[in-house]
């Protein structure tokens, strides 16, 4: 996953802010399917442009996952910070956020205009029906690649039950849980 190419640890060229914005905007216009699809496209595009090699990008991506927020946005922000410092933030932010925003305004307008047509209604119902199936599939995939141990099984089950039973408190429960889990994982590491 992380090819080590010592000769290419420094990128060959540096983009301008506009060039970074245009690349990100293009990727975020044509790539469908969310972060897991977009991130590899970003990695190869940045390397092809010679702005950042893939292993450097995946280091940033690993850090991006530690923050809340969409993976594509977080990765882009960290790329911009690395290439430009804080002045790169607007290029990354608008490159990721603007194309979907425009697309969704158009789609929302169309749905509002034609949503009462029975055929579109049935399309949206049919499309919505697969959502629980896709969530179940993501649980399946994430559970399959997780390295499980007894504490983690108990923690996952306990947190899921708490979130289901107390939906009104899901945000404080989650924030507290992340802190507690971090401490537990940290302690386990120091015991080894």
């Amino acid at each position: 996953m992380k090819p080590t190419k010592p000769e290419s640890t420094t990128a060959q060229s540096k983009p301008t802010l506009i060039e970074l914005f245009i690349l990100l905007a293009r990727i975020n216009t044509v790539t469908l399917g969310g972060g897991y699809v977009i991130v590899p496209v970003m990695a190869t595009s940045l390397e092809k442009k010679g702005w950042m090699n893939e292993s450097d990008f995946y280091d940033l991506f690993a850090r991006a996952q530690a923050f809340p927020g969409p993976m594509a946005l977080n990765s882009a922000l960290l790329v911009a910070l690395k290439l430009f410092g804080p002045k790169g933030i607007p290029a990354a932010f608008f490159g990721v956020v603007l194309p979907p925003f425009i697309a969704l305004i158009l789609v929302s307008g169309l749905i509002q205009r034609f949503g009462s047509l029975p055929v579109l209604r049935r399309f949206l119902d049919g499309a919505g029906a697969v959502v629980p199936g896709l969530i179940a599939a993501m649980i399946w995939k994430n559970a399959a690649k997780r390295s499980w141990n007894v504490p983690r099984i108990i923690e996952t089950a306990l947190l899921a039950v708490l979130l289901i039973l107390l939906p009104a408190f899901s945000l404080p429960i989650l924030l507290l849980a992340i802190v507690v889990l971090y401490c537990i994982e940290g302690l386990c590491k120091s015991w080894k």
């Binding site: 975020n28 216009t29 044509v30 790539t31 469908l32 399917g33 969310g34 972060g35 969409p70 993976m71 594509a72 946005l73 990721v96 956020v97 194309p99 979907p100 925003f101 697309a103 969704l104 789609v107 749905i111 949206l124 499309a127 919505g128 697969v130 959502v131 896709l134």
Partner: peptide, 10 residues
Amino acid sequence: IAVAQSTPGP
């Protein structure tokens, strides 16, 4: 959610 997933963007 189905539309959000099948259009560009997070």
